[in-house]
Design a protein around this nucleic acid. Structure first.
Length: 630
RNA sequence: GGCCCCAUAGUCUAGCGGUUAGGACGUUGGCCUCUCACGCCGAAAACGCGGGUUCAAAUCCCGCUGGGGUCACCA
């Protein structure tokens, strides 16, 4: 722990904590500041204290004790400087250590309990950690001090279905912005030309709107920093990349992907732990590089990361995080197609758009130093960073579509209310306080504080979500519930899609509901494993085929989930695995409808929808894997 | 493997030096009730391990273990 760590003018230690500390400590209105004194090894704690309470919040029980610490530790209360009765009077406590070790302070950690802590002296060691914690906390709180208007953003990449993780991060950004009276911005990070689609972008916007998270600026609503779609801002990134090259903070790299891959492989074989770019082009003379680029040689722009030193930042949830520059790769900033990578685009846009706080997922922690290096290279002040814990599968890996429904559309289609989903997402890492589990978005905004946000990766538990949803459902009026049902799948729109598929299969109206069950159900109950497995195939085989089909459709049906797209994809799949169409289609039919007799498969799939189909296919596969017979 | 993050019941969490370790989902027993559900009451179930600091550690420090993330011309 270096002294530099404490080199700050003021650490705001505690904010008002109305009488949380018990009768002996009228901490109401307490404000403590910790600062290191000139010699760097003496800490002073100034506390403004309710008059007459007589106890140091840093070292409870220390009142009246002076000079009892061993090893040069001492602390002394300064005489009461007076003040009107009942009003806070400042009291200065000096905690010093002559040994060079940092004098200690229990800081917030010890304010709660009373005890003769100080009487035993030996503050140096035990206090160092406490002090660090206090300082860390102070730095974290300092992050929250308004320096500039609060502006946060959610920056989804439109490369797939609207993801529950996007909603999770969007929620915390939204809540924080509203709490601070700041702005919430939506920016589309579509710099991956190969994977980004407009369709996905629209789906994400639709899903976020469904949730009720509204943004102040975005590609659809515009704003002072338009455009909000990175693909429309290429020139900006190119200019900025060029600026860095000019300054010697970035350089052109002509290495082919093939050579890079070979080099990486070779080092991996050698057991080398450094698998990053080998910096071949870093030493290229600037004019030579320019010449080659001008001649049309394909190249990228890389960040010239300092070869020594460390880059550190204060994460708003975890405190100080430091990384050796030697472990940071010379990250590509501009791809050979002229588009930026996330790292460049994100930093440039965050700065240009005046983003004050970056609230994003934990997976970005390790690239934050790169971003900091970029801010530094540009000469910009970086925003504050808050890395939210990652949502997890039941096995604690990062939440993924293989192991969990992650599409927001799935939750909509299974009749989860947006407010319940939001509430549940909030529960993943945020504690309302008082054991309260059910709360509205506006209540969350009211209660929000970063100190109530945790750091452990929460497992996403569908059952608890369902329970919570039930709470919302039962609180609704009949009328409200009726409206919700209609808006879900009992409205004309959906029924009009179902009817054509069933009318030939029923004779009386009373047969409609029983026949149509799987058009409205979420997870199918009572699937018969025996019916799932085609004659001559076994359960394990079928399970695998169904899993693979999901993957296959993932790749093959990128556009609309339509009969036209599904049929050829499924037929191709049959050829690939060597199953007769009859075999596959019957297994799929049972998996999706629970029956052997049903309307045409692809029409059914289209109407049931992508996310529910996916889910049912996986569930069927799981069922087969679990059942050893058949 | 290198680096980084994290660690209270099966799961989500409260806890910020002294608590019978609290709440919720799930599981489970009972009550309510024609049944089921809802609701209500009860039960089982947790501080990963080892050191250190302290009169006192779930809480502070160190180490270990475990889990996760990340090492792309993806974000």
């Amino acid at each position: 722990m270096s002294r530099d760590f404490f080199r700050r003018e003021n650490f705001l230690l505690a904010r008002s904590q109305p009488d949380r500390n018990g009768p002996n400590r009228q901490a109401t209105g307490t404000q403590s500041t910790l600062q290191d004194s000139q010699d760097g090894c003496c800490m002073e704690a100034t506390t403004t204290f309710a008059r007459g309470s007589g106890s140091c919040p840093i070292l409870p029980g220390a009142a009246g004790l002076t000079g009892v610490g061993r090893g040069g530790c001492s602390f002394e209360p300064e005489p009461d400087r007076g003040g009107r009765s009942g009003s806070p009077a400042p009291m200065l406590w000096r905690l010093g250590s002559g040994s060079g070790a940092l004098g200690g302070s229990g800081a917030l950690a010890t304010t709660r309990r009373q005890g003769p802590v100080a009487a035993h002296g030996r503050l140096d060691r035990r206090c160092r950690g406490l002090l660090r914690r206090a300082a860390t906390r102070a730095e974290m709180m300092d992050l929250e001090q308004p320096r500039r208007p609060v502006r946060v953003r959610i920056a989804p990449s439109p490369t797939g279905d609207p993801h529950v993780g996007t909603a999770y991060i969007a929620l915390f950004n939204y809540v924080f912005a509203r709490k601070c009276g700041g702005q919430f911005i939506l920016r589309i990070e579509d710099t991956d030309q190969a994977r980004s689609t407009r369709q996905s972008e629209e789906a994400i916007l639709r899903a976020l709107r469904w949730l009720g998270l509204s943004w102040d600026e975005g590609p659809d609503v515009g704003g002072p920093h338009a455009p909000y779609r990175q693909s429309e801002r290429s020139a900006i990134y190119q200019e900025h990349a060029a600026l860095l090259v000019e300054r010697g903070r970035a350089y052109l790299c002509f290495c082919s992907p093939e050579r890079l891959e070979a080099s990486r492989r070779e080092r991996m074989a050698r057991g080398d732990s450094h698998l990053g770019y080998d910096r071949t082009c870093r030493g290229l003379p600037r004019d030579e590089a320019k010449r080659r680029a001008a001649a049309g040689e394909p190249h990228v722009v890389r960040l010239a990361v300092p070869e020594s030193g460390t880059t550190a930042f204060v994460d708003g949830l975890r405190g100080r995080i430091a990384v050796d520059n030697a472990t940071i790769d010379d990250q590509v900033l501009l791809k050979s197609d002229g588009l930026p990578t996330y790292h460049l685009a994100n930093v440039v846009d965050d700065h240009l758009m005046g983003i004050s706080h970056v609230v994003r997922a934990e997976e970005w922690i390790i690239s934050t130093p790169k971003h900091l290096l970029l801010y530094e290279a540009f000469g910009w002040e970086p925003p504050a960073f808050y890395h939210m814990p990652l949502l997890r599968n039941a096995d604690r890996s990062k939440i993924s579509k293989r192991k969990n429904p992650v599409s927001l559309d799935y939750y909509r289609d299974t009749g989860i209310f947006p407010e319940a989903l939001l509430n549940f997402l909030a529960l993943m890492g945020f504690s309302f306080g008082g054991g309260r589990e059910k709360f509205s978005l506006s209540e969350m905004i009211e209660a929000f504080d970063w100190s109530r946000v945790g750091t452990g990766g929460p497992v996403f538990d569908l059952r608890k979500l369902s329970w919570l949803n039930g709470l919302y459902l039962r609180e609704m009026s009949h009328e409200e519930l009726l409206q919700r049902l209609r808006a879900w799948r009992l409205g004309d729109e959906y029924l009009r899609r179902v009817l054509p598929l069933l009318r030939e299969r029923i004779e009386r109206l009373d047969q409609f509901i029983p026949m149509a069950a799987y058009f409205f159900a979420g997870d199918l109950e009572q699937l018969d494993p025996a019916q799932l497995v085609p004659r001559g195939r076994d359960a394990a085989q079928t399970a695998q085929v169904l899993e693979e089909l999901v993957e296959h459709l993932e790749v093959e049906v990128r556009g609309a989930w339509s009969r036209e797209a599904l049929e050829p994809a499924c037929r191709t799949f049959c050829e690939r695995i060597g199953w007769k169409t009859k075999e596959l289609f019957s297994a799929v039919r049972v998996a999706l409808t629970g029956r052997t007799a049903a309307p045409p498969l692809f029409d059914t799939m289209e109407v049931v929808g992508k996310d529910l189909c996916r889910r049912r296919l996986r569930l069927a596969a799981q069922l087969l894997s679990a059942s050893r017979s058949v």
